[in-house]
Design a binder for these strands. Structure first.
Length: 619
DNA sequence: TGCCAAATGGTGGGC
DNA sequence: CCATTTGGCA
């Protein structure tokens, strides 16, 4: 493999990097903390740096780069960007995991090295305890002095093995660990517990740690502002004094997860622990200058020392790019919003999925409020957090089973679809574990798929595209693969309830999608959320971007008052505002309540006007 | 029935 | 941290 000399290496897929990004990219001798505001391209920077290290041989085979993200989307996105730029033998040495997937893989691989009583059986189960579960535990065990809200944090901070004496809180943590292992046939571990097990594992087993360090001399950390105490402690146990070189990226103005356990000062701790150099990126590639100027007013309130970003996107719209829209009644508000969006979408100024309605909380309620008015104008809302059956739409769409069934159904619904055909072939190859080099079996597979497509087309022609047909169509697709074969291929579906959750969700969402569709093809588009206006909470919108955002309910009292302790609400507002590439609007409704004063005070000096919405007079 | 205090849920994510 | 719901009690 030919290597590029470091001085000759050029970024790929973008014209250039900003000077600070070059500096952070070339810093390979010590850890760097890359802080950057919204739209600075932090993830893209990591992808470029990975390509640089792999292509120049600064990270030579067999050494690897370990990239750690929080969300699966982010982890996948990062590895796709590297795969696009590097040949397979290099891309293979870029290992992009979520924090939890990485930790679990270590527990699964080195389970035997864990000491009693913490060694889990091979078939331990992952559980996701909610606050109420902790409350119940503390209640039934009589730990009445321990606050359930802080109990998870207590588990996070407690190194194993847990000492059984001490404060009530410590005894509660010890009892909790014991309780999870009580029934050896059904050991239930949360990801937090898996994290603690890995911390124990590498602390007790220098040889495992040594192997880890030899494999991964380079470590990337995405969205570092969200790092939890447990995660940070694990990183320290693993890499403190090891000589591993970190590249962490993040934005402390977007730190909105402290309530869920994120460290309030992850950046400072990181600098201290790993002697990191801090480098701030300055460009904003997402928003145009008029929005960036307003963003900077908000950012300065969060951090008075923040540098003004350099806007690098073009303004493509006329008129107001930010305003507060005022309405009298909620009906008027819903109707005017629908009308305004219709007028943007109809002439093709903007794609429906490039418009987002953001809320602070309770997206379901807002969906109920808006959906009728939107439907009346032929607009559909996609609330990805909505539960269908027993699964959220966003989770359903990310499931392997869903993707497989969707592709098969698409093949039956459309005349020709090479992308789906190839993807379906890949699915089948994987499910049936067929060697890509085995041409005879490949041919057989193609013939079978061909036959299925003919039958599926026939089936869908016979079935009217109405909700009552959903189950039969889904069943036809599933029967082609075979439930048992599928469950064998994906360990995640081996437990019946886990399979049913996805399978029922698939049928339900398909059924629902058929309510508003003229054809099977339309229904499948609807299923995937094509052509729909996004509706979500601010927290869900983190990391995403939209042409236009409309923040619904500036009068919502769930914007808790801003106190010196709780800057998080201001950060949330910053996250919402910075999702917009072109325009950001806010709605107020007299019927609902008073506007949140601190937000209005914040926006006024930025020149954001409050206007009585007059869209409906233009009819 | 009405009052008050306590409990609960909401902003999230992971195999 | 706030709004809403629940439960106990008069």
């Amino acid at each position: 493999m030919s290597r590029v000399r470091p001085e000759n290496w050029r970024p790929q897929g973008v014209d250039d990097l900003e000077p600070r990004a070059w500096e952070a990219l070339r810093q390979t001798g010590r850890s760097v903390l890359v802080t950057a505001g919204a739209g600075a391209g932090k993830t893209e920077f990591l992808a470029q740096k990975a390509s640089y290290l792999l292509q120049t041989g600064l990270c030579p085979a067999p050494k690897r780069i370990l990239a750690i993200s929080f969300k699966r989307d982010a982890a996948r996105n990062l590895s796709e960007r590297v795969a696009k730029r590097c040949p397979p033998e290099q891309a293979r040495r870029f290992n992009s995991y979520t924090f939890d997937a990485f930790a679990k893989s270590l527990v699964d691989r080195f389970r035997a090295a864990l000491p009693d009583p913490y060694r889990p059986p091979a078939d331990y189960r992952i559980v996701m305890p909610r606050r109420q579960d902790y409350r119940d535990f503390l209640d039934t065990r009589g730990f009445h002095g321990v606050n359930a809200d802080q109990f998870e944090r207590a588990i996070a901070r407690t190194r194993l093995p847990v000492v059984h004496e001490g404060s009530e809180r410590e005894r509660a943590v010890a009892a909790y660990w014991q309780a999870q292992y009580d029934d050896q046939d059904d050991v239930q571990l949360s990801f937090l517990m898996i994290n603690r097990l890995v911390e124990l594992l590498i602390r007790m087993n220098p040889s495992i740690l040594k192997a880890l360090l030899l494999t991964y001399p380079v470590v990337f950390l995405d969205e570092f502002q969200d790092t939890t105490f447990a995660q940070f402690q694990l990183l320290r146990t693993a890499f403190d004094g090891s000589g591993a070189v970190f590249t962490a990226v993040g934005d402390d103005k977007q730190r909105i997860m402290v309530w869920a356990g994120a460290m309030p000062d992850a950046f400072g701790q990181f600098e201290d622990s790993f002697a990191a150099e801090r480098i701030s990126l300055i460009c904003n590639w997402r928003s145009h200058e008029d929005l960036v100027r307003i963003q900077h007013v908000i950012a300065s309130r969060i951090d008075p020392d923040v540098e003004e970003p350099e806007a690098r996107a073009d303004r493509l719209v006329d008129g107001d790019v930010a305003a507060i829209w005022e309405f009298d009644t909620e009906d008027e508000e819903s109707d005017c919003l629908a009308q305004w969006i219709e007028r943007e979408v109809q002439p093709g100024n903007v794609e429906p999925h490039d418009v987002a309605i953001l809320v602070r909380m309770r997206a379901d309620e807002v969906e109920g409020e808006l959906a009728p008015a939107f439907a009346a104008r032929g607009l559909r809302l996609r609330n990805a957090a909505r539960i269908v059956g027993d699964i959220a739409i966003q989770d359903l769409l990310g499931e392997d089973l869903t993707q497989i069934l969707l592709r098969l159904t698409r093949l039956g619904a459309s005349a020709r679809s090479p992308d789906n055909w190839n993807a379906a072939l890949r699915d089948l190859q994987f499910i049936e574990a067929i060697d890509p080099a085995d041409e005879a079996r490949q041919q057989l597979l193609q013939d079978r798929l061909q036959k299925f497509v003919r039958e599926m087309r026939h089936t869908l022609r016979e079935l009217d595209p109405v909700p009552e047909s959903a189950a039969a169509a889904a069943q036809a697709a599933l029967d082609f693969i075979g439930t048992e074969v599928l469950r064998q291929a994906f360990p995640a579906y081996q437990r019946q309830p886990d399979f049913d959750r996805v399978w029922n969700g698939f049928k339900l969402l398909l059924q629902e999608s058929l309510q508003h569709s003229e054809s099977w093809s339309d229904a499948l588009d609807e299923f995937e959320g094509l052509g729909q206006i996004a509706l979500m909470t601010i927290h869900k919108s983190k990391g995403l971007e939209f042409h236009t955002i409309i923040f619904y309910g500036l009068d919502n009292q769930t914007w808790w008052s801003l106190t010196p302790d709780r800057l998080e609400e201001l950060n949330s507002f910053f996250v919402a505002f910075t999702r917009a590439k072109q325009r950001a609007f806010f709605t107020l409704c007299a019927e609902r309540g008073q506007p949140v004063a601190w937000i209005e005070n914040l926006l006024a000096p930025a020149g954001v006007r409050r206007i009585a919405f007059e869209g409906r007079h233009g009819e």
